[in-house]
Simulated assay, not measured.
Amino acid sequence: MKQISFATLAETGKKRRTKRERFLEEMEQVVPWAKLIALIEPHYPKAGRGRRPRGLETMLRIYFMQQWFNLSDPGMEDTLYDVPCMRAFAKLDLFDESMPDETTILKFRRLLEQHRLMAAIMNTINEVLEGKGLLLKGGTMVDATIIHAPPSTKNESKQRDPQMHQTKKGNNWFFGMKIHVGADVDSGLVHTVSVTPANAPDVSQLPKLLREDDRAVFGDKGYVDNRIKRAARQAGVFWGVSLKASAQHKLSGANKRFNRKMSSIRSRVEHVFRVIKRQFGYSKVRYKGLAKNAAQVFTLIGLTNLYLARRAMLT
């Protein structure tokens, strides 16, 4: 057993737990640590003659806290020194060992990117949720959201990120990328993710977001496509995409009632974006290029699924 320092012992005697502490206690219980560690371990550096690598579980916990609290590498290093409950969650003690520095944190993330482990992390989490009966099959809700990228050209290359693009939504222009998700109708948990520049039409990603055994599809007007609609109906799939009015064809009262009914069903998929943008603070890209940002999105989606399913898992 590791000896507990006096400072850590004093922290455990607090009478009131903060929201951050309660959140970390819940995540401690619902994250499938053993499966994720087994997934990463074959790619993790082994101890040799050189500098001994940090413990894999500690680095994974630090990486997850970066996603939950939207922290940069330097910000995460400072937080480990400043916030006792986050230090304890990473299984570190201030008086026993130095904290992992920002370079160590960066190298761990690059290891995950190099071996494409972020998507595997999301899939592993989904497998656990499916095994517990929390991620079901039968129908899919599709939706997309825009994540902003810096539009400024005041940088070394004097240009914006060439892999990001601008798009018009309503009367406003947005520059960045777009997250497309396919979520389970019953649970609201995401099973498939696609990341594109912001100017990609929502309907272009629809075939990628559906599962072969889906018997129903729900989406907003951005997914109107008569060709896909006919193919779905021929396959016996319920088409729950909202109807779109045109200059020649106005929506009837029945059409509007259908749209309201479909909107009430697919509205659950918006909870995913609320957690990512408001709970985890991910509303602006952190890296340059689609690949690095898409890798982070995979991790965020997996952790969002755990957050949305945490109460069912705890009970």
Rank of each mutant, 00 (worst) to 15 (best):
V224G: 01
T18H: 09
K35N: 07
Y44A: 05
M76Y: 01
W173A: 02
P151M: 09
V30E: 04
L134P: 11
L210Q: 05
E57M: 02
D186Y: 04
W173H: 12
E270I: 08
R160V: 13
G139E: 06
S264V: 00
K2Q: 12
H249T: 13
R20T: 15
S283A: 14
H180K: 02
Y287C: 06
V142Q: 09
V193Y: 07
D78Q: 14
N199S: 15
R22W: 06
F175M: 10
T153A: 10
D225T: 01
A149T: 15
L189E: 05
L129Q: 10
V241F: 08
V203W: 03
I276S: 01
T79S: 13
P197M: 06
A149C: 14
G302T: 04
H115D: 06
E21P: 00
L71T: 06
Y287Q: 11
G13I: 03
P42S: 12
P53R: 01
T140L: 02
F258D: 07
S264R: 14
R230E: 15
I228M: 15
S98K: 13
F6N: 08
K244A: 03
D186S: 13
S264H: 13
Q67N: 12
V31H: 07
A247H: 14
K15I: 10
I146K: 09
R49A: 11
L251R: 01
L36F: 08
V128R: 14
H43D: 11
R160Q: 15
V195C: 15
M122P: 01
H249A: 11
E25T: 12
R17G: 04
D213M: 03
V181S: 09
Q279I: 05
R16T: 12
G236S: 10
I121T: 14
R257C: 03
R49W: 13
R109L: 02
L290R: 09
A291M: 11
Y81I: 00
E11W: 15
G289F: 10
